[in-house]
């Protein structure tokens, strides 16, 4: 069960092999987390993430494999996670590929990014929402991004998919009102992780540890939207910039 501070004893992490997910799991294991299901694509990396989780204090850790390109498999993957974990206090969605500057109009790359960043997660969240509604309680935390707030020109495919997932999650949270399930969206500045290696540093950047602290604090506050770093909330003002000007801003 969740405690009064919103801290989970059992969690499922979709996209459990990322640096971010690892940092969040470590922070949760310092509090109350004992039962954990890590779901991801790469078996090797899942194993290594699982042993880090055990080292951090999680007692029962299992892994589930899925391929974020296979939307038809998303509900099955989520069901497997729930069946393995027992009642799930927290579902953390950390799935999504960051496309490096996609200047070319490459339709297959677009399909891949949109599938892994929006379609698969949306289906998975729908299934998780329904399982948690049956439980009568639960938290869903969706890692979103500042690019979802206003889609940058140079990263519009990924940005638009994140914007879609962000809006989907907010809508899902509203739809779940009264079920005991709470959906929280964590909008991240840039974190230096495996996905962003080689990209130049940016303002409003953050670290996996800062994200983990923000997730833990967010669980306590029950806020619908959590900004990391907190100053990132001012990015919302970017919505007011005229499009003619916005497209000239170097990404």
């Amino acid at each position: 069960m969740l405690d009064a501070f919103g801290q989970p004893q059992s969690a499922v992490v979709l996209g459990g092999t990322s640096d971010l997910a690892g940092a969040v799991v470590r922070a949760l294991a310092q509090r109350r987390l004992r039962t954990l299901v890590l779901a991801g694509r790469d078996e090797e990396r899942l194993r290594s993430a699982a042993s880090s989780a055990v080292a951090a204090g999680a007692e029962r850790v299992s892994t589930v494999r899925f391929d974020a390109q296979d939307v038809s498999d998303a509900a099955r993957a989520v069901d497997e996670c729930f069946d393995v974990a027992g009642p799930v206090d927290l579902l953390l969605l950390a799935v999504g590929v960051l496309s490096h500057r996609q200047d070319e109009l490459d339709s297959s790359a677009t399909a891949e990014v949109v599938t892994a960043t929006y379609s698969w997660p949306a289906v998975a969240l729908t299934r998780a929402a329904s399982r948690m509604s049956e439980q009568g309680y639960g938290r869903i935390v969706v890692l979103s991004s500042l690019v979802a707030v206003r889609v940058p020109r140079h990263n519009f495919v990924y940005g638009s998919a994140k914007a879609g997932l962000d809006a989907f999650s907010i809508g899902l949270g509203d739809a779940l009102s009264g079920t005991g399930v709470i959906v929280q969206v964590v909008r991240l500045g840039r974190a230096p992780t495996k996905m962003t290696e080689g990209l130049p540093g940016a303002p409003l950047s953050t670290t996996p540890e800062a994200v983990a602290d923000a997730v833990v604090a967010g669980l306590e506050s029950r806020a619908q939207v959590v900004w990391v770093p907190p100053a990132a909330r001012w990015v919302a003002l970017a919505r007011l910039v005229p499009q003619s000007l916005w497209r000239r801003i170097p990404g």
């Binding site: 009064a4 919103g6 009568g136």
Partner: peptide, 9 residues
């Protein structure tokens, strides 16, 4: 009574 952590039953 502390109004934290509502669940549905």
């Amino acid at each position: 009574w502390g109004r934290a952590g509502a669940t549905r039953a």
